[in-house]
Each structure stands twice: as C-alpha cells, then as structure tokens.
Amino acid sequence: MQQFEKHTGLVVPLDRANVDTDAIIPKQYLKSIKRTGFGPNLFDDWRYLDPGEPGMNHSKRRINPEFVLNQPRYAGASILLARDNFGCGSSREHAPWALMDYGIRAVIAPSYADIFYNNSFKNGLLPIVLDRNAVDRLFKETAATPGYRLTVDLAAQSVTAPSGATFKFEIDAFRKHCLLNGLDDIGLTLQHVDEIRAYEARRRQEAPWLFT
C-alpha cells in the first residue's frame, strides 16, 4: 500500500452531497480484471456526454466541459473537496481504486459513508473529515483562487491553506500508523522480514530441496 505522510496538491471541488460509488465508478467497469485503469472512468457519467463501455478509447469520447474535473484550471488535481456522505452506496473497492488511479491522494469532506471510509484506508487514500464550516471556507477559497493548493500533513493531522490557516482533523491511531508507514496486511507481515529470512535460512539447511 502506498504510504501517506505529507502531501501538497491542487484541489478540485465537487460541490454535491451524497456522491455514491456508482457515480464514482459506474458498474460496467467492474468487469475488469484489474484494480488499476479505472482513472479514465472516474465519475464517468458526469465527465462524458456519451455512454461509456469498458474497452472504449475514452480519450476519443465527448467530454462534458461543464464538469469540474474537465476544467483546465483543475487539471492534475490530487485533493478532492467534497460534501456530506461522500462514497455512499455499495462496498466496491473500485471506488477508492478509481480515485487513486486518477491521481487523488486525499479527500476532504464533512462526512463519509462508512464502507467507503474503511476501503479508502485499505488502499492508501486518505479521507479527511473537517467540520462543515471549514469545508465551506475551503470551497470558497478554491473557487476564488486559481491554482489553489492545500498541504495535508498526516503526522500532524493538519490541513494547511495557502494563507497559512491550519485545520486539524481526527484519525484513529492504528489507521494513522498503518497509513503513515504504508502498511496493509502485506505491509504488516513485511514488518517481520527478519523472522521470515531467519526461517528461510534455517529451512535451507534442514530441507534444501524445498528451495530449488
């Protein structure tokens, strides 16, 4: 899992509440054998004017110029600013996969759907909860300031605006530890690398035929 310590990035505002997982990544793309490659289909129904199917060349499709992600000033954004109950709907991990694949590293919203919130941590995406007033202020500043960037510091549990204003956020200590160190199940096992190596060394002596 990708670790998350500190990240500074361009902010894209998605000014809607209850953005569901089907909106984040429509169901026709779940047939994929991959966990990556969902980026071009993030918010597919909103981003394109024509219907999308897996296997299409999405760069040839008709872009919806109205949609915020398609506006040139937000190109390359890596922090998504959102409203209440972001990620509601199904349990699909394709939603955080799609956000990550597009290049989003952190989401800032007043609240999240529970499963989406959990799934995000499993995949190295940081969902930040700030109160409604703070989120409102960030929406306003983003709209008013082209090239608006925020700095997210996980260790300090803070979001810092260009003005120097800092917003603190809460996060579960274990989740913070895992994300800071990029630890998923595999990451946790890899904390015992020395023990695995020692085991292997001993087994190579005892039963070398297992290693050919």
Partner: peptide
C-alpha cells in the same frame, strides 16, 4: 490478475520468484 496488479501498484516483487 488483481493480485499481480496489487504488487505492481505497491512497487513490490515476488518474495521468492522460484
């Protein structure tokens, strides 16, 4: 496929290819 994809995403290699 998704397992290999996961490895690639995390920049990991198989522990013991053989």
């Amino acid at each position: 496929p998704q397992a290999f994809e996961g490895l690639k995403l995390a920049g990991r290699k198989p522990w013991r290819v053989a």
